[in-house]
Amino acid sequence: MRITKLMNVVILCDGNPPRPEQLKEALKHSSLFIAADGGAFIAKSMGVEPEIIIGDLDSYSKTGKEQASVIHDPDQETNDLEKALAYAFKKEGKNVVVFGATGKRLDHTLKNLSVLKQFNHQFETLVFKDKYSVVFLLPKNFETELPLQTTVSLFPLSGKVEGVTTTGLKYAMSNGTLENGIQDGSSNLTTEKKIEIVHKKGDLLIFINHKTDR
């Protein structure tokens, strides 16, 4: 299999699975589909086939019948998501969507958020998606348009984020500080279609929540 320069990559991990339509819609716009170890089983259950299965293979066992290329990387200093992202970077991926990086074990979710920070600078965009939220690290100056009454949460991934100013949110901040254990920015609401978020120092994570009861 020959993979040349590509732009859009979808990675499926072994956490809580996305809705099948979420995954299939993302795959319509992707150039490469990577399953991180046990994510291959989720792909199979949804009737889709990855091009690459990569990991330490403690969850997935090679059958020899795969259409995918199976890459066994036994390195215990990196988790399966790190392995998948490193592969995507090596193949010149630019925009990466990761499903299944959250849910199940909380320690795995926290580790994957750390991996998000680790690899964020290597791609033009790196986004986690699940049934409930779209999650990514914010640039220092960020603006977007969202439906009114969309739930938006901000989380100081670096522990403390300074100089936070928001517009278009119900609970506004002006040059404020978010710090774990002191003040967080969870469960805010959009009051305008256009929102703007600025921060001066630290790593600020945003959760944009879907309106879903599933």
Results as ranks from 00 to 15, higher is better:
P50F: 05
E145D: 09
F128D: 07
A84F: 09
M46Y: 14
I34T: 11
Q22A: 06
V198Q: 12
K200G: 01
E145L: 07
F142R: 11
T150D: 10
K111Q: 09
F89C: 06
G163R: 06
I11D: 00
G55C: 09
I42K: 01
A101T: 04
F119A: 01
D14N: 08
H108G: 03
N95V: 05
S187A: 13
V152M: 05
L178G: 10
A172R: 14
K83R: 13
E49Y: 07
E49L: 04
K211R: 13
E145N: 02
G100P: 00
L12I: 12
L85K: 01
T177H: 00
N180K: 12
Q149R: 14
E145S: 10
N141D: 15
N180A: 04
L85S: 11
N120Y: 14
L57S: 00
Y60G: 01
I3M: 01
K200W: 02
P139T: 04
A84I: 12
G185S: 10
I182P: 05
V98E: 01
N188T: 05
L110T: 00
G168P: 05
Q76H: 11
T177I: 07
L106R: 12
I206R: 01
H72A: 01
N120L: 02
E196G: 02
G55P: 11
T165H: 12
G103I: 07
K83F: 14
E49I: 13
V135I: 15
A26G: 00
Q118A: 12
D107M: 04
L106A: 13
K193I: 01
A68H: 03
A43G: 08
A86M: 14
L157Y: 09
T151G: 04
V96D: 06
S61I: 08
Q67V: 08
L189F: 14
A172F: 05
A88L: 13
V115M: 11
I42L: 02
S45A: 08
L81N: 09
K201N: 15
F123E: 12
G202D: 08
D73F: 09
E192N: 14
E51M: 08
L110M: 14
V134R: 15
I182Y: 14
D58P: 06
I53V: 14
D80L: 08
D37P: 02
A26S: 15
A43I: 02
Y132P: 02
I206F: 05
F155V: 04
F119Y: 13
T212F: 02
L27C: 02
F89N: 12
E145P: 00
P74T: 12
M46D: 01
L204Y: 04
V98Y: 02
L148C: 09
T165A: 11
P20D: 03
E196I: 11
D184Y: 03
S153L: 08
T167G: 12
K5Y: 10
G100V: 06
I34A: 00
G64L: 03
L116Y: 04
